[in-house]
Amino acid sequence: MKLNDLQTLIPLTVHYAPADLTQELEGAYCSDLLSNVMGQAKPGMVWLTMQSHPNIIAVASLLGLAGILLVGGAKPEQETINKAASENIPLFSAPASCFEIAGLLYQQGLRG
């Protein structure tokens, strides 16, 4: 499954996306605790979180995550979008809950 498959799978808003979204996802990780993500998420994963402040971009960038999907209706701050663009981290948001989205991604074969 690739990042651009997310858009066909769930209704979402694209806040920042590089031209190429065809990178194969290595899995997904759900957490709102940044140190937990730092310790557990693997490079190439998409990160599902409610946290919308700019610091999530640094976490994704340092870990080499494939992108961030804000769940449960969370919306990014403008500064978060700016940072996503400068660090080239794909950033989406969706109204669906973390549980629902994680379930859909799991059905598509993604693992943690």
Binding site: S35, G39, I56
Partner: peptide, 9 residues
């Protein structure tokens, strides 16, 4: 509330 301070650092 920002997701820091989980005691994992």
């Amino acid at each position: 509330e920002m997701g820091f301070g989980a005691g994992m650092g």
